[in-house]
Amino acid sequence: MAISEEQVYAGISTVIDPEVGFDIVSLGLIYGVKIEGEHVHVTMTLSTRGCPLHELIKQWTKESVEKLEGVKTCEVEVVWEPAWNISMASDIVKKALEA
């Protein structure tokens, strides 16, 4: 059975940014998911350029998708445009950070 975008997002939402304490989907770091059969292409960003966790977060995202049933390979592309800002995060994250 083909995997859905929602399932991919659910898988990626298990990845937590250990500095901020929220999952990267709620933080609004995932810009897009493209499913081509059993291959998934994830476009994402990071909250800061030069983040020391850059490669780890990218790797965790890839692993979280490849773990899903119906996915064989996943490619993660990190982009810097448009630059991340807080308006991309979920309301829960916004509220928690501003508290």
Binding site: S47, T48, G50, A83, I86
Partner: peptide, 12 residues
């Protein structure tokens, strides 16, 4: 210039 925006999530 690197650390303070990183820790405070400041942009723009």
């Amino acid at each position: 210039l690197v650390l303070i925006p990183m820790f405070s999530l400041a942009h723009n």
